[in-house]
Amino acid sequence: MPGGDFHPWLFFILAAWILICGLGVVAFKKVMYSAASMVACFLGVAFAYALLNAPLVAVVQILVYVGAISIVIIFAIMLTEVQDGGYDLFFNRQAVLAAPLAVAAAAVLTVVVVTADVGQIGDKALNPSVKGISLLLFKGYVFPFELVSLVLVAAMIGALVLARKEEEKS
């Protein structure tokens, strides 16, 4: 049973929520419904982080995923939604092959994960507090931290350059 300071059923309700919303992203025909389902899924994942004793990650998940990434995706949907219509097929022909493949991959991965020897594990929750994480981040991982900021600047400039309108060439 999933351990922690919460009732085990909470885990199963949460897992069902996350998986059903994830399936909704794949199955909804309208892109906007997919996006709404994705937001619900991200909220569920944030709740999962909270249950896993990682409140910082839960808050960052809500800020970045539910807040920022969803907005960007919804903007993109609104900018690109095809008005010419008539494109009803939302699965392509690979679905026939991909469905058994995905189920088989899920089965194999589940067996591997459950039988894997991941070393010593206990039922105690071990995630450090926010203080512990920040100590780890700013002591051991300063270089990756700075590198990530560089990546963010590069991504920002790259997105601006890619999405801006081409100037008229004389």
């Binding site: 010593q120 929750a125 990546v151």
Partner: peptide, 27 residues
């Protein structure tokens, strides 16, 4: 959270992944 000896490294990595996912989605 459950494996002794990891001590928050996984949590930290998930923060990095969230940041990079934001960059990826923008581009």
């Amino acid at each position: 959270n459950f494996r002794a000896g990891a001590l928050g490294a996984g949590t930290l990595f998930s923060l990095f992944i969230i940041t990079l996912a934001a960059a990826e989605v923008t581009v």
